[in-house]
Simulated assay, not measured.
Amino acid sequence: MTPEVTVTVRLVRSFEHRNFRPVVYHGVNLDQTVQEFLEFIKKDIAVRVGLPPPFRKHTYDTMKIIHQAHGAKTNELVVGLEDDEKLILRHGQSLQEAGVANETELALFCDTDYRQYKKNPVSTW
Score class of each variant (00 low, 15 high):
residue 31 D to P: 00
residue 31 D to I: 00
residue 31 D to T: 07
residue 32 Q to F: 13
residue 32 Q to N: 10
residue 32 Q to G: 13
residue 32 Q to W: 15
residue 33 T to P: 01
residue 33 T to N: 09
residue 34 V to G: 00
residue 35 Q to M: 15
residue 35 Q to G: 07
residue 36 E to P: 05
residue 36 E to M: 06
residue 36 E to G: 02
residue 36 E to R: 12
residue 36 E to A: 12
residue 37 F to M: 06
residue 37 F to I: 11
residue 37 F to Q: 05
residue 37 F to K: 12
residue 38 L to N: 09
residue 38 L to D: 02
residue 40 F to V: 02
residue 40 F to A: 00
residue 40 F to E: 06
residue 41 I to R: 00
residue 41 I to M: 06
residue 41 I to E: 04
residue 42 K to M: 09
residue 42 K to F: 03
residue 42 K to N: 04
residue 42 K to E: 11
residue 42 K to A: 09
residue 43 K to G: 11
residue 43 K to H: 09
residue 44 D to N: 13
residue 45 I to N: 06
residue 45 I to G: 02
residue 45 I to V: 15
residue 45 I to Q: 00
residue 46 A to G: 12
residue 46 A to N: 05
residue 46 A to L: 12
residue 46 A to H: 10
residue 47 V to G: 02
residue 47 V to I: 12
residue 47 V to T: 15
residue 47 V to K: 13
residue 48 R to E: 14
residue 48 R to D: 10
residue 49 V to D: 09
residue 49 V to Q: 09
residue 49 V to R: 09
residue 51 L to E: 07
residue 52 P to I: 00
residue 52 P to W: 03
residue 52 P to K: 04
residue 52 P to E: 12
residue 53 P to A: 14
residue 54 P to A: 05
residue 54 P to E: 11
residue 55 F to H: 05
residue 55 F to I: 03
residue 55 F to A: 07
residue 55 F to W: 01
residue 56 R to A: 12
residue 57 K to R: 15
residue 57 K to F: 10
residue 57 K to Q: 13
residue 58 H to T: 02
residue 58 H to Y: 07
residue 59 T to C: 08
residue 59 T to H: 12
residue 60 Y to L: 09
residue 60 Y to I: 09
residue 60 Y to C: 09
residue 61 D to T: 00
residue 62 T to E: 06
residue 63 M to T: 03
residue 63 M to G: 08
residue 63 M to I: 07
residue 64 K to I: 04
residue 64 K to V: 00
residue 66 I to V: 08
residue 66 I to Y: 04
residue 66 I to A: 02
residue 66 I to S: 07
residue 68 Q to V: 08
residue 69 A to Q: 13
residue 70 H to W: 09
residue 70 H to D: 11
residue 71 G to T: 12
residue 71 G to P: 06
residue 71 G to S: 15
residue 71 G to D: 14
residue 72 A to Q: 02
residue 72 A to Y: 02
residue 72 A to N: 03
residue 73 K to V: 08
residue 73 K to I: 01
residue 73 K to C: 08
residue 73 K to Q: 11
residue 74 T to W: 04
residue 74 T to M: 01
residue 75 N to G: 14
residue 75 N to H: 11
residue 75 N to Y: 08
residue 75 N to S: 14
residue 76 E to D: 13
residue 77 L to G: 08
residue 77 L to R: 14
residue 78 V to C: 07
residue 79 V to F: 10
residue 80 G to D: 13
residue 80 G to E: 12
residue 81 L to H: 04
residue 82 E to M: 13
residue 82 E to Q: 10
residue 82 E to D: 13
residue 83 D to E: 06
residue 85 E to V: 05
residue 85 E to W: 05
residue 85 E to I: 00
residue 85 E to S: 10
residue 85 E to N: 07
residue 87 L to H: 10
residue 87 L to Y: 13
residue 88 I to S: 05
residue 88 I to H: 03
residue 88 I to W: 04
